[in-house]
């Protein structure tokens, strides 16, 4: 179902969920949970948004049934650790590439995905100051390196 324009802010989290449906269903589940919660704050009034969110909720309930025996799903404290470890693993990979001067699409995507997953961490509560800094740095780095490569410049 097409994403209504009012819910544009969650499109990348939903795409990350799709990319992880096979690779890591726990990540996919919490990306969709974040999208659901954020979507309801953005707009759950207009009919097309409500319709979209009802479909997303259907998907979440199905995923929960399928993954129900996974501790990361039925114990959110375990889920929190799972998402945080995954986000930081992506961040460290991109940061190592950056420090080694290896700039490419994969590392840009890893920085950006890490920042999206740090957004997702907020479903478990307030982000730590460290994660807020990591998220800001990752998003800035992804944008900066992407623009450098687009303009044929070497990132510093």
């Amino acid at each position: 179902m097409a994403l209504p324009a009012q819910l544009k802010a969650i499109q990348h989290h939903l795409r990350t969920a799709q990319e992880h449906d096979k690779r890591d269903p726990v990540v996919a589940y919490y990306c969709r949970l974040y999208a659901m919660q954020t979507g309801m704050k953005l707009d759950s009034k207009t009919p097309e948004c409500r319709k979209f969110l009802v479909k997303l909720m259907d998907q979440l309930e199905t995923m929960k049934k399928e993954l129900g025996d996974n501790d990361s799903i039925n114990q959110e404290v375990v889920g929190n650790a799972h998402i945080e470890n995954y986000a930081l693993k992506m961040f460290l990979y991109a940061d190592n590439e950056d420090r080694a001067g290896r700039f490419h699409k994969n590392m840009i995507k890893s920085f950006y995905s890490a920042s999206l997953l740090l957004d997702v961490l907020s479903v478990f509560g307030e982000l730590s100051e460290e994660n807020i800094q990591h998220r800001k740095y990752a998003r800035w780095k992804a944008t900066y390196i992407h623009n450098c490569l687009k303009n044929g410049e070497t990132p510093q």
Binding site: Q37, M40, K45, P47, R50, V54, M57, E61, K64, N74
Partner: peptide, 27 residues
């Protein structure tokens, strides 16, 4: 129709909130 539409919308919003809380075992 306006008021009916509004009450349908808020009923569906409430239902979504309840389903979300249930999904997270918060009810």
């Amino acid at each position: 129709t306006g008021s009916v539409g509004t009450s349908v919308a808020s009923a569906e919003q409430d239902e979504l909130s309840q389903r979300l809380a249930k999904l997270r075992d918060q009810i």
